[in-house]
Amino acid sequence: MEGVIRGKAHVFGPNIDTDQIYPGRYLELTEPEDIAAHVMEGADPDFVKNMAPGDIVVASRNFGCGSSREHAAITLKYARVGAVVAESFARIFFRNAINLGVPLMVCPGIANRVSTGDELEVDLARGEVRNLTKGEVYQGEGLADHILEILQQGGIKPVFRRRLGIE
């Protein structure tokens, strides 16, 4: 996992649920590349065209509420979204994203301060977001140690592979 992630911001509102991150009609898909093709489609059908790898999804409160579908984390990971920074996250999405090694940060008030297109640096180690376009710094919340550890090992799969002695 990279310590600092740099990319263009795409700003969303509150309660972006998992149907907006990944619509239910595609739940039968199982290949990561197929799943990635529908990233954020329920919230913005053009997102997939407008984003570049490493770009940062910024959202208001309760990002990822709704279903437990792991597709929501898979689609962000394989569309190569750099990080998701939100005012708060729903619990199951939060676990899924960490398990897959998708960097997350909780950052109070961020959705009102960042505009789509701003160039951001997300510094996971320092728990801050730097807005290079606006010249501002936002203080986020650090991740709990055991969660940071999972992220630093690249997600829960490498953790288990090591535990089972196959890595």
Binding site: S68, R69, E70, I92, R95, N96, G155, I156, K157, F160
Partner: peptide
């Protein structure tokens, strides 16, 4: 409580 796929897979193992 609900979890995603990979969390559930870790339970199947451990």
């Amino acid at each position: 409580t609900g979890v995603g796929a990979t969390d559930l897979a870790t339970i199947l193992i451990s």
